[in-house]
Design a protein around this nucleic acid. Structure first.
Lengths: 187, 187
DNA sequence: CTCCCTGGTCAACGCTTGTTGACTTGAGGC
DNA sequence: GCCTCAAGTCAACAAGCGTTGACCAGGGAG
């Protein structure tokens, strides 16, 4: 056994990383504490020590801050580009949003958390760019972003999976811009 | 005990209905054969008798035919209205598509099935209305429809959940129309 | 060197799950 | 009235799960 040096924060981090990776791949229920511990090279009891629960591990693995850019004063095209770039980066830099997206489909708690992210983080930021009806417009932007991520990353549709960041900008950017700024939209 | 009359097709149907309802509410893994049997008022062994497997029950509960309308010769607005109406009805008349949407998030097999529905059923029908790049345009339409359903039905966002069919037409119809028919879209 | 606290191990528990096989019951054909 | 086969019941199985508590070890402080 290599028996790594004893380091609480390191093993805690290893468990959290392994958990996040598995939650992103398999959702909540298919992930077992034993499989997370195995991937982290750790005893299953360590998971309980640091996260008390499987739910506790998930809660921490799914903690998310969108940190959206300031959209005030930008034109429709610039808004769209900024949003596409930010979400593109968000999905690339960490699997956290994918964790939440996957789990939300089968867990009411996770769904509520993702809805909270949408309403409390994305909502206010997007509202600053909406010409009217900010709740509807922000939710529609969220629906297109999540739907795109779902079909691209979860279903793995080739037509969307093959798109580069520039492609995504060109294809869905205008939709996001219009959802926020088109005054003729809505009933 | 009321002891209903012995009727194979009736109990089979009761099991299938209960299974579909629970899969639509909870996804695949949270549903247990015992809970389905209980809701159907039947012994758990009956589920195995008629569907051999939990997977077999799911396969049958998730069988889906979109039956999209013929879009050829329609203008952009008519195309959008027809699509919104059809999917609105699809989600209302049966929980099957919701079953597939929920399960796809955590099961590769279900994801492949939903992707198959998208590529083999929605794809060809939508391609008849696409000005070019039919694969990309059809997938984008699918992403917006599934994303809308996800945020409305799974997350339960109030702004989308409160929309009537006419509201949905007015808000997302133009997006669907442009994804298919806007010649300036894409890279 | 010795204490002791923290990080880590181990084996087991109780429970639920999918699934099985042997059994019982009911109704229609002779 | 009885026989038979389909429909339905019952109890149990093996496996996997989350979780627990008692135990070991190792390294810095005195």
């Amino acid at each position: 056994m290599p028996s790594r040096p004893r380091d609480a924060t390191a093993t805690r981090g290893a468990i959290l990383d392994a958990g996040r990776a598995q939650f992103a791949r398999d959702g909540f229920e298919r992930v077992t504490i034993r499989s997370v511990a195995a991937e982290a090279g750790v005893d299953p009891a360590m998971v309980m020590r640091y996260f008390t629960n499987k739910a506790g591990l998930f809660t921490e693995a799914a903690a998310l801050e969108l940190v959206l850019p300031d959209l005030r004063g930008l034109g429709p095209d610039a808004i769209a580009d900024a949003l596409v770039d930010r979400f593109f980066a968000l999905f690339e830099e960490s699997p956290t949003l994918l964790v939440l997206l996957r789990a939300a489909a089968t867990s009411p708690e996770a769904a509520e958390r993702l809805l909270g992210v949408l309403l409390e983080q994305a909502g206010p930021a997007l509202a600053t760019a909406a010409v009217d009806r900010p709740a509807e417009r922000a939710a529609l932007v969220g629906s297109q972003i999540l739907g795109f991520a779902f079909v691209r990353l979860v279903l793995g549709a080739p037509a969307l999976a093959a798109m580069s960041r520039e492609d995504v900008r060109a294809w869905v950017g205008p939709t996001l811009a219009r959802y926020l700024t088109d005054p003729d939209l809505g009933p």
